[in-house]
Amino acid sequence: MSASLVLEQLLNGLQFGLMLFLLSAGLTLVLGMMDVVNLAQGSLYMLGAYFAATLGAATGSFWAGVVGAVLATAVVALLLEVSVLRRVYGADHLTQVLATFALILMFNEGVRMIWGPQALLLSVPPELARPVALLPGLSYSAYRLAIIATGAVLAVALFLFIHRTRVGMWVRAGASNRRMAQAMGVPIRRVFTGVFVVGAALSAVAGALLGPIFAVQVGMGEEVLILAFVVIVIGGIGSVKGSLVGSLLVGVVDTAGRAFLPAAFGQLFPPEVASNLGPAVASVLIYFLMALVLFLRPQGLFPVRG
């Protein structure tokens, strides 16, 4: 196992983790502030990808597509918040899970109606469709580097916003004690709508950027949604810092597990056992991580409530 292989897999994990962060940041705040379980966050991610594909094709520019997708998804999120989510604030989690599960079905079929059932295959913008030599013997996809950079910039920006601005303080205060924040004069409804829309926009960024790496297809949101939930449970519900740490942890552990575990098991066990066990353990690693975190720290790594 060479150092450059480890490094490359780390980069892969980083890229994956940062995208997970974009998805989970909004989710964790929505959950922390309004106690709303929103399964439809994955659908917003999917919408972001579809909008990016369509607008990118229409304008001929990948980046124009991304920006347009973010705006369009934000508008959809605003409508969604006003029309459905407001009605499930304060309801129990079961209601929320089911209402937003119904939304997933509707979004999926809606997308199928508009864009058709086939997966859209996006291309990486041509200027980034090449490798970049990072070290001797290690070249890495320029597009993935761009994703890492975008993700990192957005993560830092979000972090600064949450930790350095007044509205960010309100958001954190609201996540920890909504009623008290209200009593201090925070217009919590509007802040929440803002948080929801920004969260949706970040999900759309993730969807749009990952579009060319994955395929833009119906159902792309669900798998990544479960991962996002794992992330926020590990990080602590309501904590942006927690979701950043959780995302990177899940990204790196998952990538490393898939890359190295099968080989490692191959050296420990007979091939027959290893070929079963390796992938099995690799794919449940993050769930195991989550169960472990919950067992040791039932409120996640960075609990928000006092």
């Binding site: 959950l31 379980v37 989690h93 899970v97 479960i226 939930f229 794992v230 449970v233 519900i237 769930y287 989550m290 169960a291 919950l294 039932p298």
Partner: peptide, 10 residues
């Protein structure tokens, strides 16, 4: 919520 999530994890 943690119960929901941990049953899902398993």
């Amino acid at each position: 919520l943690y119960f929901i999530m941990i049953t899902l994890a398993f």
